[in-house]
Design a protein around this nucleic acid. Structure first.
Length: 414
RNA sequence: GGGGAGAUACCGAAGUGGCCAAACGGGGCAGACUGUAAAUCUGCUGGCUAUGCCUUCGGAGGUUCGAAUCCUCCUCUCCCCA
């Protein structure tokens, strides 16, 4: 590569991105920004409906960080307006509207987590209600006039739902417009998003043009599959790994992904040099047990988000509990009070419920029938069994769920 | 505005008076096997003070000894015509 600073920046930006539309424009923007000594304004929007940031979000966030490291400014938009309206998209018909308090709270949690990755000093955090709320109906009409239904139906999920006879509300058509208007409001030079955002990002270019602004360049990034390896990572599907989860959980969840998915995660999340990753992949293809590589990845991610000490502990915990199949040292504890006991025993079903391992008595019965329940190493097969508990005893459900039972000392008489 | 189709458990989808807590598939959970991988096989998958009882088939009423199934009204969705 040559020494042209613009080419060097382009190279960094291009790495891992799916598309840059259009590349030429980005080069020009970088060049003029450099010449003028001003940073590019790189927009990224987040909807504060679910406050937990997971690995899927970190793909674009890391790219944003790279922009920051290249000297640019990130404009982080919190879609509080959007959240208040209640996004009806997808098939989740029951997605409820959030209260202003919830939005505020989520937004704060969000920021807290986002700055695990982003550089606070090069980030401008803005709420889109600031400019969306004051819009008047005539202004909205004016905005709505800029897009056609046919254009909207080009968007994959709209088109698909339309063909399948699934409902699409007019409100949903408004979303891309609002998002586009955000770009106008913050005068975005570049916007980042997942590939599922391509349509919205492109439409924003048109809207900016309509409002007399130079259109933003869009950079799309791959969507990370969730731990199931099929659907994109999302909180609502429960296939996510949150960046604020305890190291053990991050470690454990990574260990449970499939081998194929592991390499995908390496490519999208790991900071190891590409060559090293390719080497590992090759090694495993020729017969090596992938578990070593999986641990390496689990360690890297746990360390990045929970710290190296916690990651090391999580790794040790994993080996002890899951590989050597020993009972872990620490586990959640459940305190039984005297009133829970009768003559030192508790019905198993009660015990399972009190420990929060099952949601209902019926579920407790099923798990017992399945042979999944044991106390201090003894399998319990009778759902009517009375368990003689002792302080420190271990209740176990399945392979991975443990609860240490604590007995509350009898109240002292005075 | 007119005509037609539809709403079933986490999701998809059968069921059209009692044998329906509701087939089947997916997902999920558990068991076996394993590397907490994949694949495969097996079981479970509304609740309860439990051989019974209660809640659940869009909502509210009604018919009936008995309703997811029949009737009335309502809400929502899709398609066609205007």
């Amino acid at each position: 590569m040559d020494n042209d600073p613009v080419s060097r920046q382009m190279e960094v930006i291009r790495r891992g991105a799916v598309e840059i539309i259009p590349e030429r424009e980005l080069e020009e923007k970088l060049r003029s920004a450099l010449a003028a000594g001003r940073p590019l304004r790189v927009k990224y929007g987040a909807d504060p409906s679910a406050p937990d940031i997971h690995l899927g979000h970190t793909v674009p966030l890391s790219k944003l960080r790279q922009f920051q490291d290249l000297g640019h400014l990130v404009v982080f938009i919190i879609g509080d307006f959007t959240a208040l309206v209640g996004d009806p998209s997808g098939r989740s018909k029951t997605r409820r509207r959030l209260s202003p308090e919830e939005v505020k709270e989520n937004a704060l949690t969000y920021q807290e987590q986002v700055f695990k990755i982003l550089d606070r000093d090069r980030t401008e955090v803005v709420y889109n209600s600031r400019w969306l709320s004051p819009l008047t109906f005539p202004e909205i009409v004016d905005l709505a006039a800029r897009a056609t239904v046919a254009r909207m139906l080009e968007r994959d999920d709209f088109g698909k739902r339309y063909r399948e006879g699934k409902p699409i509300s007019v409100l949903e058509f408004l979303y891309p417009l609002m998002q586009g208007y955000d770009s106008v409001a913050v005068r975005a030079d570049v916007e980042l998003g997942g590939t599922d955002q391509t349509f919205n990002l492109l439409l924003a270019r048109e809207i900016q043009r309509e409002y007399g602004q130079p259109p933003q360049v869009i950079v799309t990034l791959p969507l990370l599959e969730g731990t199931d390896g099929v659907q994109k990572m999302s909180k609502s599907l429960g296939n996510y790994i949150g960046i604020s989860e305890p190291a053990r959980d991050i470690f454990g969840k990574v260990m449970s992904i499939s081998d194929d998915l592991m390499w995908r995660y390496y490519e999208l999340l790991s900071r190891l040099p590409a060559g090293e990753i390719a080497g590992g992949k090759e090694e495993c293809r020729s017969g090596a047990n992938p578990i070593a590589w999986k641990k390496k990845l689990a360690w890297e991610l746990a360390a990045r988000f929970a710290g190296t000490a916690a990651a090391a502990e999580a790794g040790a915990y994993f080996e002890e509990v899951h590989q050597k199949k020993e009972i872990p040292e620490d586990m959640p504890e459940v305190v039984l009070e005297e009133k829970d006991l009768s003559a030192g025993t508790v019905p198993v079903i009660e015990l399972l419920r009190l420990s929060g391992l099952v949601p209902s008595n019926a579920e407790a019965r099923r798990k017992i029938a399945e042979g999944a329940v044991s106390y201090d190493g003894e399998k319990i097969n009778e759902h009517g069994a009375e368990v003689r508990v002792k302080d420190g005893g271990v209740l176990r459900l399945g392979k991975r769920k443990f609860r240490r039972i604590r007995l509350e000392p009898p109240p002292e008489k005075n």
